[in-house]
Design a protein around this nucleic acid. Structure first.
Length: 774
RNA sequence: GGGCGGGUAGCUCAGUUGGGAGAGCAUCGGCCUUACAAGCCGAGGGUCACAGGUUCAAGCCCUGUUCCGCCCACCA
């Protein structure tokens, strides 16, 4: 309720909602009350700015919506390129033959013309003697003025001047002391100044004026003309520039400070590209029209004395006029632009103008996360007001997130009706899946086209996490103490090292606001390292009751890894992680109150372990190699294979020996034999990994064609890579100019691939020989 | 008219300081293997929009062209 009342713009939303609920909406403004505290802040700001001369009232051309009957700020006007017409009209000279021809897209405004302007240096009008023209249809004599605003290259160089209905003409009018004749009233109808056209709607009037001109032969031609037409952001009707009295904020001095704060880096805008947009806008900012002729909103705290006309701006309604003592004072009926009060949000919601503890703690804040579409409406104005009234920036970082667009890349909006309801997506795929998707999509500087398939993919991820937790709880029936870091198995050391790396990646990504990187790192870790490898690897240990010490140690690691992973995931997957956390034996309290991993306290378990990663990677290579053979050779998973590994390295052999059971289990082997390189098995499929060759003997069932094709394919890939590497290494410039470590890396890679190539070549020859002998 | 962003696998998109082109989905082949068929294992697929330039080396830097999207603007 507070929020709704607070954002006065939402008044229309409230009414619409009530109408949908069947309520009648004959409320008057008196019944619509503002939150007292917020209202006080708004009045305080208004009064202070007024006293400093930064708020003034004046007659200006503003954007006016005839349907909503209210002024609009520049930002509330949406420009749309439309096919219109350019009407060329003859204005007969007075006291001289001939006309001046002017062009306009809005002929109905000619009824309010008070001059015709030409450029002072326009050669075409050098001989012009006449000082005025006779305004057609109105038969009013209006002066010819010279003003260098006129663009000589446009049309005939003659410009009709309508100060009451065009912002530029208004400026010209001021320079030349022209009268301002309003011909269109606030409803968009022609008023009494429009002569015989009075009462016509502005668009009907356009037709009528054109027809009248045509009959008098004053219409030269009508051209097709594309031009931007302003529309009301709320009701979409064409906006009319209109002369009226409004309240303005003089933003110059405020904008200067707001500009400076970003230039000096006191407030950073992320991604940086938006800073340029911010600068452009702040440097060209115009005074801000803050009065609105609607009833919902903060009423402007200004009173006019009916007796003497004195204007009083004050916190509370004055009893008497300070000038003449009259008691007849009427309050301004206009209310403030919703963004005026929104601009005060960082401090008005904290109890300002009182020096509350809340205000002390939360001003300024660390970061504001928002969409670019609100950068000017809100962010820039919070900056201006914050710097002015709090003398400090309201926030240190402004993170501009991506905007979710529809499948056509269009911005979603209620009025366009292309909104994808998040609740619908949530119903279908779950809140966590939806949230994770948004994080995964949130690459910087780019908008998001919502893709249901991506959401579905991440729903699978949530499900995977849930199942991994279920598996863990089958074994984790009680809280486990942290295991001895010095006495861990290789897979334990490996997963902890990978976890450590993931924590660092996630932390760094979050620090840089790269949410997609953080989500991606977690996705890979959970699915492809934790689930695909670690959980599979530890199954024998968990099911085997003969070594309780090893089981306890592994369970301890599992619990820690799961716990840390949940903590990392929680900001992305709040609900499911909380649910799992609750079931985790070793955790108490809510996960949302847990500490994010690596919070400064040293942790003996959470360390990078390069040796473990290298060793584990080799074991995984062996397994993947065997799986590849099985897959490519179309061997049924149920077929139990034998495997031989040849390696010249004692350390490699010893490592593989130690983890023989692991490999046998994961690769679904009958046996694994590790030896020094020696006689090769007769009929076998082969895979080559660094420092070792894996043979899968397939006595009697080796498909020679398939194995030949498999090896040839592998060789083809190698050849391609080797050609590139060889070319590089034979380039003297490369050897001379590239950094030594890069060259060394290339050499190592070349050596490794050459060796691999040699081995595969040898194996290919053996297979071919086998074929020949068969 | 000005400014900004983008064109990378069939689709949606990553690619941080220039040195091995990636993910998810989709596709193809094989699997109900004791957490998960919303799953597991394996595989195929790209002249990084186009044309130049800088560099030993360009998806990445520079110039131009082209297509798409967005924002801003008072040329009547």
């Amino acid at each position: 309720e507070r929020v709704w009342q607070w954002r006065s713009e939402s008044g229309s939303a409230i009414i619409n909602q009530l109408k949908r609920l069947g309520a009648s909406c004959d409320w008057d403004r008196e019944r619509f009350t503002m939150d007292e505290g917020l209202s006080k802040a708004v009045r305080t700001v208004f009064v202070q700015l007024y006293r400093e001369g930064l708020i003034y009232q004046g007659n200006y051309i503003i954007n006016w919506c005839p349907r909503c009957r209210t002024a609009l700020s520049d930002l509330e006007v949406e420009h749309e390129e439309l096919d219109g017409h350019l009407y060329h009209i003859r204005y007969p000279l007075v006291g001289q033959e001939g006309p001046i021809i002017v062009a306009t897209t809005r002929p109905e405004t000619m009824l309010g013309d008070t001059a015709v302007a030409i450029h002072p240096e326009d050669e075409r009008y050098k001989e012009l003697k006449a000082v005025s023209v006779l305004l057609p249809l109105m038969n009013r004599e209006i002066p010819i003025i010279r003003d260098d605003y006129v663009d000589m290259s446009f049309g005939t160089g003659g410009l009709k001047v309508t100060p009451a209905h065009d912002p530029n003409d208004f400026e010209i009018g001021k320079r030349h002391n022209l009268p301002e004749i309003k011909v269109i009233d606030d409803d968009g109808r022609m008023n009494e100044n429009a002569g015989s056209f009075q009462g016509l709607d502005r668009f009907e009037c356009r037709k009528a004026v054109v027809e009248a001109l045509r009959q008098k032969n004053l219409l030269v031609k009508i051209e097709d003309h594309k031009h931007g037409v302003g529309h009301c952001y709320r009701c979409k009707s064409v906006v009319e520039p209109n002369l009226s009295q409004q309240w303005f904020v003089k933003v110059g001095p405020l904008a200067e400070k707001a500009l400076e704060a970003v230039k000096t880096g006191e407030t950073k805008i992320i991604p940086e590209t938006w800073e340029k947009t911010y600068f452009d806008w702040m440097e060209n900012i115009r005074d801000w029209c803050i009065s609105r002729q609607i009833w919902w909103g903060h009423r402007i705290p200004a009173w006019t004395c009916e007796a003497c006309g004195e204007l009083v701006v004050a916190m509370e309604a004055p009893d008497t006029c300070p000038e003449c003592g009259s008691r007849k004072l009427t309050q301004e009926t206009d209310v403030l632009d919703t963004w005026f009060s929104s601009a005060l949000w960082p401090f008005s919601t904290m109890g300002w103008p009182d020096e509350t503890p809340l205000l002390k703690s939360f001003y300024p804040t660390a970061a504001l996360v928002t969409g670019f579409d609100i950068l000017f409406f809100w962010v820039a104005r919070m900056m201006m007001m914050g710097l002015h009234f709090m003398e400090d920036v309201p926030f240190k970082d402004v993170y501009i997130h991506a905007l979710v667009r529809d499948e056509n890349g269009q911005k979603m909006s209620k009025s366009k009706g292309n909104v994808i309801d998040p609740l619908h997506t949530i119903d279908q795929y779950g809140t966590d899946a939806f949230r994770f998707t948004l994080a995964a999509f949130a690459a910087q500087g780019r908008d998001i086209k919502m893709s249901e398939q991506r959401v579905e993919g991440y729903r699978h991820f949530i499900n995977k996490l849930w199942n991994a937790a279920r598996f863990s709880f089958m074994h984790l029936t009680e809280a486990m103490p942290d295991p001895d870091a010095a006495n861990l198995s290789l897979p334990d050391r490996w997963i902890l090292s990978r976890l450590r790396d993931t924590v660092e990646n996630v932390r760094s990504a979050l620090d840089r606001y790269h949410f997609n990187d953080a989500a991606g790192a977690l996705y890979r870790f959970v699915w492809h390292e934790l689930c695909d490898w670690y959980l599979e690897i530890i199954k024998p240990t968990l099911y085997n009751e003969s070594d309780p010490a090893a089981k306890r140690s592994t369970l301890g690691v599992l619990e820690r890894v799961l716990k840390e992973t949940l903590l990392l995931l929680h900001p992305f997957i709040p609900f499911v992680t909380e649910e799992i956390w609750e079931k985790l034996p070793g955790a108490d309290g809510y996960i949302m109150r847990g500490e994010f991993p690596l919070n400064g306290t040293p942790d003996p378990l959470l360390n990078r372990d390069e040796a473990a990663e290298t060793e584990m990677t080799r074991i995984m290579d062996v397994i993947t190699g065997i799986r590849n053979i099985r897959g490519e050779m179309n061997l049924a998973p149920s077929l139990e294979l034998k495997a031989l590994v040849h390696s010249p390295e004692a350390a490699v052999r010893s490592s593989l020996e130690t983890h023989r059971d692991l490999i046998i289990n994961i690769a679904r082997l009958k046996s694994l034999t590790v030896t020094e390189p020696g006689p090769k098995p007769e009929s076998a499929a082969t895979t080559v990994i660094p420092d070792a060759t894996v043979f899968v003997p397939l006595e009697g069932i080796l498909d020679i064609e398939k194995e030949t094709a498999r090896l040839e394919k592998e060789l083809g890939k190698l050849d391609g890579e080797l050609v590139k590497l060889t070319k590089k290494l034979s380039n003297q410039d490369y050897l001379g100019k590239a950094p030594a470590d890069v060259v060394q890396k290339t050499k190592d890679k070349h050596a490794e691939l050459t060796e691999k190539q040699r081995k595969i070549q040898g194996q290919l020859e053996r297979v071919r020989a086998l074929k020949a002998s068969a």
